[in-house]
């Protein structure tokens, strides 16, 4: 069974079809490359996989699940609860002054003992007098607005990058997006944070769990930084690293999430040949850690050197897929990269 299934994924932006019914299957433990000329829609596929874009059609399944929050019982309960709470709040707001008078002021004189009993009677008579505008209208309106509003908010939030991240998909960005003003260590720790049990009250009160997890997380982060050979830069600000180091820090940050699948968006861009070689070695080691790799790359040496399989995109369509040798020999791929020439026919 494949780890990631991209099924007839289509992305439309206005009239432009950026990705057109692309199907990909990525088995666990492989290194798969996605190549194609600039503007072929590779990064758009990544964005759809990581939940940044909502696919116009088709779907993405990761480890057998959709990478979005499913409508289930607890969501329904939550929506209903929001509806009822809004209705209650609206009823309260519409009648708050009268209720206050009936329940509080009516029962209480200055420095007297407070009696609840008569209030309950007044309470029912109050609502029975004009139940239409006092009770039913705000209740119906509140229920409707609460339900609809909660539904709208939930719809908008169900496909989000953090859902994909929690499922176990990590990524790097084509134009590096580190947290520039945070230290190298903090960048890596941030990637690890979602796996921690510490909640905000642990942190605010510095409970034992906070200290224990901080110790563990820091040592794990330094281990990861050692893995990508950045352990000498731990306390540097991310923006002060060299370009190659920033690329590796992005990979380290992604690895800290302990993902099942890592998406690398042009990791070799801007690297010199020696750095590219080191990167290839790093990607192999990542795979040895049991992490599946999906790679976008223009550097054919890297792609051909490490990929188990390659998929080729052109103008949003998948034009070829296979082992490096098969793809290299595929006439459609050659045409996409070099243009159609009469001599080749």
């Amino acid at each position: 069974m494949s780890l990631l299934q991209v099924d007839k994924l289509t992305m439309r932006f206005g009239g432009l079809v950026a990705v057109d019914a692309v199907t990909l299957e990525i088995p666990p433990g492989e290194i798969v490359s996605l190549i194609g000329p600039n503007g072929a829609g590779k990064t758009t596929v990544f964005n759809a996989i990581t939940g940044i874009y909502e696919p116009s059609a088709g779907g993405v399944r990761f480890a057998g699940h959709e990478t979005r929050s499913e409508f289930c019982g607890s969501v329904a309960v939550l929506l209903l609860l929001t509806g009822f709470l809004t209705a209650g709040a609206l009823i309260l707001l519409c009648n708050i002054e009268s209720l206050w008078e009936v329940v509080i002021t009516g029962n209480y004189q200055y420095r007297q003992v407070f009696q609840w009993k008569p209030a309950n009677i007044a309470f029912t008579t109050y609502f029975s007098e004009n139940s239409g505008t006092r009770l039913i209208l705000p209740a119906v309106l509140g229920l409707f607005l609460g339900l609809a509003g909660a539904w709208a908010v939930w719809q908008r939030s169900r496909r989000a990058p953090e859902v994909a991240a929690h499922a176990g998909i990590a990524r790097t960005f084509q134009n590096i997006r580190l947290f520039n003003q945070m230290t190298v260590l903090d960048n890596v720790l941030l990637g690890m944070d979602t796996r921690l049990q510490t909640r905000f009250w642990h942190a605010a009160l510095r409970l034992p769990l906070f200290w224990r997890e901080r110790r563990e997380a820091t040592s794990k982060a330094i281990e990861i930084l050692r893995f990508v050979d950045l352990d000498r830069e731990v306390n540097q600000l991310a923006e002060n690293l060299s370009y190659g180091h920033q690329r590796r820090l992005e990979i380290a940050r992604a690895l800290a999430m302990q993902p099942k699948l890592i998406l690398l968006d042009e990791p070799a861009a801007g690297l010199n040949p020696a750095e590219s070689q080191a990167l290839m070695e790093l990607i192999r080691q990542i795979r040895e850690r049991g992490i599946t790799v999906l790679l976008i790359e223009h550097d054919m040496q890297v792609v051909m050197g490490i990929s188990d399989r390659i998929a080729v995109l052109d103008y949003g369509e998948k034009i070829a897929e296979g082992t490096p040798a098969e793809v290299r020999a595929n006439p459609a791929v050659i045409e996409a990269y070099l243009g159609k020439s009469d001599a080749s026919t």
Binding site: T50, I52, S157, A160, P161, E162, A164, A165, H166, A170, R171, F173, R177, L178, F179, N180, Q181, M182, D186, L189, L190, G191, D193, T194, L196, T198, F200, H202, A203, A204, L205, R206, F210, R214, R253, A254, M257
Partner: peptide, 29 residues
């Protein structure tokens, strides 16, 4: 205490780059 914990780290990450933070599993909302 909050600032120097995962909570503060997530807050600052959101301030710097919300999208990248959410791709790292931070739930910005």
């Amino acid at each position: 205490n909050l600032q120097r914990s995962r909570v503060g780290r997530a807050w600052i990450a959101i301030r710097e780059d919300e999208l990248a933070a959410s791709c790292m599993g931070v739930n910005p909302m």
